[in-house]
Nucleic acid binder design. Structure first.
Lengths: 373, 373
DNA sequence: TGCTTCAATCTAAGCGCATAAGTAGCCCGA
DNA sequence: TCGGGCTACTTATGCGCTTAGATTGAAGCA
């Protein structure tokens, strides 16, 4: 690992100036074919790799797009758990050329759909694919959401996509002064970011209509904390959908357990024990619904016989759960793609007014409402 | 989007030199508390975001790790398909504040386990998690594997993890002169990279023993192209395992269809039609096995009744296929983590000799060998 | 031949930060 | 009172690249 070759080394070897070296790479048409080849050959011979840092500095932009996640997001493994797993690996890594024993932590269970391709993963995948197809490097980072952590990331990219987090709104505003920012959540306050969101209203209306008109249920309860902006919008949609159907809508959610809460659905449990469950539990997300499904199964409540349960998102785990989960599917991959496009468009042209791009959803009827297994 | 604030702006506002600004961020202890606060406040006020390019240039390293994928990898969607999907999105994106209609391409099928959490995704996830837990930005890129594409990525990172690709070996050698490189494949030729691999020999031996001793099968055929290094190692392991059990091993694979091949298992099909299928088809990977399962089902061959089928990898899709897939599971997430650790260790200390870290595997018995559904 | 034109290349000036080396101011002891 | 030793800063330089503008040389033309 000697000193990395630079343009100067290439220039010297090819007998040209460093500007010509640069042109050979960035402006092939402004330079004679023969010199270009000579430069490229020289670069090849000494193993020259252009420094993105230097280029970024000179150009004023990095060319990369970023995707920032908050730690402790949506029920993901926490740092401490992760750190534990690391220690095992670290210990074994000291041994060269050896066999690292089977990691019990990587039991087949880890391939569980409940853990991996979650909502954020599918959106991220769309973002990745879009970046790839445009040759844009993608920088993935995560942090606590404090100013330093976000700035650390923002300093490396030309545009930033963010999953909504509990904090960091102010820091994000500051980032948005310098580059386009897109959030995957409904706008809460006034902000200067783009938003990629789904049609919570339409999706919820379709879902509620199905439960009410097709399944003849009238007593519906909503499960989900209003602290998450999209959950809140879904609850509002839930209420207006009921009202449209002439059914009195509850003023409050049945249970406000949100994802990642340590607390676990105390109000749902209480309703089970008091035998006061509504006809259907409309959950704010699939992950919430799957947890509810577990909870009900553990208490002997049958779904969909005793109560219907529905989710929202359409993550993969809902397809393979028993019963499979009736839900409103978001086009998650498309959302990721749209976000990437928004950033790329704005990176190239002048800054534009913040956009809110809303994508249609679709009702997926499955077992947990009685429409499948 | 005004000109981005720099250290100079912060220094001016705080009434100090730019060195002090830099110290305020990077060497908090070398500076008086009051000054530090003043600088941080000034930075905060004008929305200063440190430029990673400038820092990287000054320091000689970027701090980020990279993961490079070859386009057209392991049966992933090709660029053309992706491009088509984009066009749809692009068209709709011109509409501000509108509703983007449901994308038929994002049918529920797209949440299919066959498409998404593949081998590479799980490894990538481990890499991501490890980067996250160490606060290291992760740069994801992909390209054709030519020198320019790899250099483009290599110029941005301090270390690079690579999935084995058909090309680019020479370019990689050149990259390895400048930074640590780790490959997820068994070493083919002499190279100066680290390798994170699994115990193909032990895994295959366990699998073959199971088929032979527990299921009493003696006529085993191997499906997989030897062009993929790990597949080739698995075939060798397959043969030696049979030999150890006193069973004559085939000299050649039954069918050399590799992943991503346009061709489709011509030899397997021929064997089906000639009614000359062996007792068991040992496939080089899960994706191969799943394709074989489809193929057999389409031709009325029953698994495991008429023939056993096994995979290798332990991807999620094998759990939800019918029949579910007997396979040798690799600790994919751990592999990703180990790769990240190797890079981080070497980034910090001096360069070391290339390592080959081999991880143990585990046999997962499921329906396709008759052990489950 | 002398002049213009133009393509090919070079010169030189940053880009924003880190940091080695220098300096000012202060406290302290003799 | 003065010098030494610190701390807390500043000055000055360079990291490797891009790019506007200067330069060169050859071709084109009257």
């Amino acid at each position: 690992m000697n000193r990395k070759p630079t343009v100067y080394d290439v220039a010297e070897r090819a007998g040209v100036s460093i500007a010509t070296v640069s042109f050979a790479f960035r402006r092939p048409d402004q330079i004679r074919e023969s010199t270009r080849k000579a430069v490229l050959a020289a670069a090849h011979e000494i193993g020259y790799i252009p420094s993105a840092s230097a280029r970024g500095l000179a150009r004023g932009q990095t060319g990369a797009l970023g995707m920032y996640s908050f730690e402790m997001l949506l029920g993901r493994p926490q740092r401490s758990e992760v750190a534990d797993a690391e220690n095992d690996i670290l210990r074994d890594l000291d041994i060269t050329d050896s066999m690292i024993p089977w990691d019990e932590a990587d039991e087949d269970l880890l391939a569980d759909a409940r853990a991996f391709p979650l909502y954020v993963d599918e959106v991220q995948r769309g973002f990745e694919l879009e970046c790839k197809s445009h040759g844009r490097p993608l920088l993935l980072t995560s942090g606590s959401g404090d100013e330093a952590a976000i700035a650390e990331t923002a300093g490396r990219v030309d545009g930033l996509a963010i999953f909504p987090g509990s904090s960091g709104a102010e820091a994000l505003e500051r980032v948005a002064l310098n580059m386009p920012v897109v959030l995957f959540s409904v706008p809460q306050a006034e902000d200067s970011h783009h938003h990629v969101v789904v049609d919570n209203l339409g999706g919820m209306r379709e879902l509620v209509s199905h439960l009410v008109l097709d399944h003849g249920k009238a007593r519906l309860g909503f499960v989900g904390g209003r602290t998450v902006a999209d959950f809140s919008e879904r609850f509002d949609a839930f209420r207006s959908a009921l009202t449209e159907l002439g059914i009195p809508a509850p003023d409050e959610v049945l249970d406000d357990t949100a994802l990642g809460d340590g607390r676990g659905f105390g109000r749902v449990i209480a309703a089970v024990e008091a035998e006061e469950l509504p006809d259907a539990l409309v959950c704010a997300s699939d992950q919430t619904a799957l947890a509810v499904l577990d909870l009900l199964a553990a208490r002997g409540v049958r779904v969909p016989d005793d109560v219907l349960v529905t989710g929202f998102d359409g993550i993969f785990a809902g397809r393979v759960s028993r019963p499979s989960l009736t839900t409103v599917r978001q086009p998650m991959e498309t959302m990721g793609r749209v976000a990437a496009r928004l950033l790329m468009e704005e990176t190239q042209s002048a800054s534009e007014a913040p956009r809110v791009v809303r994508l249609a959803t679709r009702l997926i009827r499955r077992g947990s409402c009685g429409c499948g297994i």
